[in-house]
Design a protein around this nucleic acid. Structure first.
Lengths: 197, 197
DNA sequence: TATTTGAATGACTATATGGTCACTGAGTAC
DNA sequence: GTACTCAGTGACCATATAGTCATTCAAATA
């Protein structure tokens, strides 16, 4: 690569980096291309030299982030030895990247079909692990018999609910931190079969 | 009321009526004031003669609708003799007004604080009825002991989830109709204590 | 009938924002 | 060293949309 190509690559990376920061803190919908350019210290027009339009930029960043994040999550889940620990690891991770998840969850209903499909696909991979864990619990007789897919939907919906309306529940700090224990406890009490009492 | 006052009132009502239709079918955020005016067959400026700004118009309509709807729901719930029937009545009603609920649920995270507070408040009244029903079930020994508020959150989150992402689950028709039975069945199986099997 | 009132008009403004393009100047190729 | 290339520029454009205001004309009033 000659000087020019290196420079171009650097600018491209700079845009991706700054855009990611903007998107995470303000959301995809509320970040303007001018803002991103300003944040990078480049001209507004330069941005469109590297990315034909805003949507393409968003998709590239989202793809990148989703890939990284979903792999990490699946890794964390795999390390767990039961549903409780899986949930713990999962929620811990979401908490660490809460701004990102807050943005995605809140804006999801407004994304283009393509963007939505990408997000839902990644989530479905993670969700499958939970469904499998529930199925195993049922097979072992530890959990009540129920529709495991629907059970997972109850779980993921609840997490999404807290994430998307985060501002209602906490003025600052993490919603997930605040409700993690209760979510886990309640969900497990839903599933767990008790003979006693 | 003289002719002028009558005319003014009629125009005002016309705006409220048409704006409501627009808002329900397209959402509050995606409906423009010009559209509403066009739909009413009045000049754009006339709208601001009756409502100082868009937000005020939205709030008035939302207040109206929420009041009507939440009273009806509470009525329907009261008629039910157990949680299952409550849920059935509740979901039937949501299904009938699904466009409205779809819009509200999807856009909620983007509303102003005031708008959000109004919606959440109404929902909380309905939610309380369910919490109470769960508490009674627990007291009677029919339901497992659990955090009833959290249990209700799982329920309402799941309903919101299907409503807000409706387009993913059905290309046309009602999401609620599609998932109603499964939601009820799963939620009840979560709560119900079983000694058998 | 003459004067005042006020509902309604619609052209206009202000602002935001995604995207374009003619131009510049440093880097590259010969 | 000269001609060419292309990353970068920033003024500009198109569009959307909430909100304003001077003007109009029918209704109310005296």
């Amino acid at each position: 690569m000659n000087k020019r190509q290196v420079q171009k690559q650097q600018t491209r990376n700079l845009i991706l980096q700054q855009a990611k920061n903007c998107f995470i803190s303000k959301g995809f919908l509320n970040t303007t291309t001018s803002e991103i350019a300003a944040e990078c210290g480049i001209a507004h027009g330069t941005l469109f030299l590297h990315f034909n339009n805003k949507e393409i930029l968003i998709i590239e960043i989202l793809d990148q982030q989703l890939e990284i994040i979903s792999l990490k999550i699946i890794e964390l889940i795999r390390e767990a030895y039961d549903l409780k620990e899986m949930l713990n690891n999962y929620l811990d991770f979401i908490q660490r990247e809460e701004d990102f998840f807050h943005t995605i969850t809140r804006e999801l209903p407004f994304y283009s079909d393509e963007l939505r499909r990408k997000i839902i696909f990644r989530e479905s991979l993670i969700r499958k692990k939970f469904v499998k864990a529930i199925d195993e619990g049922i097979a072992r007789g530890n959990f009540i018999t129920c529709d495991s897919v629907m059970a997972a939907t109850f779980l993921f919906s609840t997490i999404s609910y807290y994430l998307s309306l985060k501002n209602i529940f906490v003025s600052e700090g993490s919603v997930i931190a605040k409700f993690k224990d209760k979510i886990i406890l309640t969900f497990l009490s839903f599933l767990t079969r008790r003979e006693d009492a």
